[in-house]
Every structure is written in C-alpha cells, then in structure tokens.
Amino acid sequence: MVVAEDVAVDYLNPAHHGRTTAIEDASFDVRRGETFVIIGPSGCGKTTLLKTIAGFMRPTRGKLLVEGHPAREPGPDRAVVFQDFDQLFAWRTVRDNVVYALRVARNTPVRAAREKADAMLALVDITRAANKYPHELSGGMKQRAAIARALALEPTMLLMDEPFGALDMITRNQLQIELKNIHRRTGVTIVLVTHSIQEAIYLGDRVMVMSRHPARIREIVDTHDQSDVESPRFAELTGKLRELLVHRDQELDVPEEAVL
C-alpha cells in the first residue's frame, strides 16, 4: 500500500529563513488492511509524515510510493480525518457534507450520493444528526461525521491525524471501540497518528515509534489484536512503548541538544 524508503521531509522555516528537517531516513511499509499507528512526542514530525502520504507535502529526499505511485497530489483515495473540527464544512449539514464530498470527489449522481451518505451516517451512528449543521454537534459527533465523510469516499486508505485528540476520555474510548469495529467490518487500511500509547496498542496492528530532533523511526512494534486493555500482554506493550518514547528520548535528547 505504502512503501517509504529513506524518506526525508524538509520545510522552509520563514522565521529563521532556513530549512528545518521534519523527518529523516524514514523507511517503513503499510500493509493492506492493517491499522498502522505512528506514535511520537509532539513536534516529532508524525503529522508531517501523514501529510506527505496524503500528498499535501512532498518528500525532499527518498521515495514514498502509495499503491506503487508517488503521492504527488492529495486525493480522495487517501481520505484524511483531522483532529480539528473545522474539517467539516460549516455551511453544509452533516448529510450534505457527505453528499458534497461524493459529488465532487467521486462524481456520484445525487440520488446515489444521498443513499450512500445515509448508509455511512448509520454506520457511525449519527443518523439522528443528519440534518444538523456541524456547529450544533458535540465534538464526538463531529468526528463521527468526519469519519463518515471519509469512509463514504471508499478510500484505499484512511489517514487519521490524532482524530480523537480533542475529545474527552469517555467519548474518546467509545470512538476507539467503534473505529475498531468499523475497521473489522470494512477492512479499510488505516494510518493513524496519535500520542496516546493506550490508543496505539488498542487500535494498531503495528506501531511505529518516532523520536524527536530529528524525527527518526525508533522501532516498529507488533501490537495486533490487543482488544483487552487489562491483559498482561497489553501492559507489557505499554511498558515497552513508554520505554521507547519517554526514557530513551531523555537519554538521546541531551547529546543531540548539545550537538545542535
């Protein structure tokens, strides 16, 4: 699905009139049908990596292939769910957001688009909010709507940038369970960025841990089928990821800061 070889992404930093390296030497692959989680401290470039897969940015060096082709432009085959609620178009109802997306991205005829939209809203359980405007919804409902819009496009993969990051704990857990169910039912490939260890293990088949300054891949950990957060294996993985994220980060950060 996605093959990355030695990908580096620099971006121009207008404040310093220089280039900042957001990602360095990233090599990984995303397999069809899996949930691939990218986890790392904030500012480590995980969102940049997701945006590069989405086609919003291009790799400065290295090779990034999506379904065998370089991802040069964004497109509905890689539907993105963002953290911010204003990803929904405020001037359209929930249902019209989905219908509009199908109309412009997939050229779906109106009637088919409406039927599809209703089916997707039922899938994420917000049928009762179909005719509401986004500002009338709670945070969790907005994210459900965004997921419905993304899934309606029948993307080859769903890219999610901390989709539950702005939600309260209860809503967040509920949506994690539902996303897992949706994944099971649709089999869609998911690339999910998060900074929650629990979320990474619970949802991920594999978790890619990233470091900061510069952003590099530290390790890719196999975490598939962890739906029991109480199990010893879950605790073991939590410890392992915490070790990779927190402790080694402290060890490594000091000399790197000194070099810079």
């Binding site: 919003f56 497109g75 509905p76 993105v80 990803q87």
Partner: peptide
C-alpha cells in the same frame, strides 16, 4: 484544516 479537507477531495 478546512483548506486541507477541500484539497483532500481533489478540489
């Protein structure tokens, strides 16, 4: 985010 969502639809 609104702009990225629009570009994601290929607009």
């Amino acid at each position: 985010t609104t702009q990225l969502a629009a570009r994601n639809l290929g607009l």
